[in-house]
Design a protein around this nucleic acid. Structure first.
Lengths: 184, 184
DNA sequence: CGGCTTTATGCAACTAGTTGCAAAACATCG
DNA sequence: CGATGTTTTGCAACTAGTTGCATAAAGCCG
């Protein structure tokens, strides 16, 4: 149950409309908590009806008309509560690893192209994170907030680094196997 | 849509009942595709009705009575099809990173205990993976199947290594911050 | 102006995973 | 034998995320 808190966080950083939030999720928060615009609008409605956020006053509120929201004290309190509360890590799921295990059993042909594709995607993501690091985290200007944000970005960078390295390794392993024969 | 394929993979490796599958998921496949027994039973029913698996003949089939399943040719074909088909990586979600980002905004107190708890869990998981590696993957006996499985295990080990290192780093960072003052 | 595209909001149906609970068979122990 | 506990199977309701589509306003272009 984290989407409302992701939205609260984003709105604390800057009051926004649904579409603006969607774009910001695509660029930033979505790196570790993605959401579609449909989810976001639905959740904004809920958060408003619960009194956690409110729409900024606008002359002509209507469908197709921009509606910006800001966080109310109750919302901030809820976010602080959630942040401090202990949470169990939720079970890990990774379809690619599962497919590889399945490939080991049915004789894996055709999975290599997809490994390569994933490698490209992870490389691109890694490059993007590195660019953000260079742009937003110069060695000076290290407020506590910056340091925490940098820490989060570091996790993203290290994760993508891991995946690129692992996929690279997996591909050489497969190339090797195809020489010997993969069928079982 | 991967649970049926996880189950097919497990049943290819060895025909099993629902409860046996549940236990095997807890120990092995569940490391990257977890499932509860309720999910597994539901899915076994579906797979059977689709003709992908069948119950092994038993004298007295009834509720409370063990029912083992084996994969039929159609099931094997479906698994091979799925394995070879290209799939987009699904968006990453991580509640802990989100919480940290929220903490940067509302002033993060109280999250450290949970970081420590997560660190312990990841350390335990890493130790478990390392034990499996030593037990199941001696340097000799390297069939193609073994090599692919080892590759998958390596991913688990490297991921847990990453998390333990990152959490360790995060905790020293936080200790440092508390000296300077975290509140915003 | 009239049609086309973009911006913006939003509903509804569907899919997948989680949680809570229960029932049938079997084992054990007094 | 009967009470109690364990194994095994399973239903039902709920929660969260995905997909497909609809609607309204505003901007652009000929």
């Amino acid at each position: 149950m984290s989407l409302p808190h992701a939205i609260l966080t984003a709105l604390m950083e800057k009051p926004s409309s649904g579409l603006e939030l969607t774009r910001r999720f695509d660029r930033s928060i979505g790196y570790f908590w993605s959401a579609t615009h449909q989810q976001i609008y639905r959740e904004l409605g809920r958060l408003e009806s619960e009194g956690h956020i409110r729409a900024l006053p606008s002359d002509r509120p209507a469908r197709g008309q921009k509606r910006s929201y800001e966080v109310l004290p109750a919302g901030r309190a809820e976010l602080a509560r959630w942040t401090a509360a202990s949470q169990d890590p939720k079970p890990y799921r990774d379809a690619l690893l599962l497919r590889l295990r399945a490939a080991a059993v049915v004789g894996g042909t055709g999975i290599e192209a997809d490994l390569r594709r994933h490698l490209d995607l992870h490389r691109a993501q890694l490059a993007e994170y590195r660019a953000i690091e260079e742009r937003d985290f110069p060695p000076d200007r290290v407020t506590p907030q910056d340091r925490v944000r940098h820490l989060v970005l570091r996790a993203g960078i290290d994760l993508e680094t891991f995946w690129t390295e692992w996929l690279d390794h997996a591909l050489t392993e497969f190339a090797d196997l195809d020489g010997t024969g993969t069928a079982d």
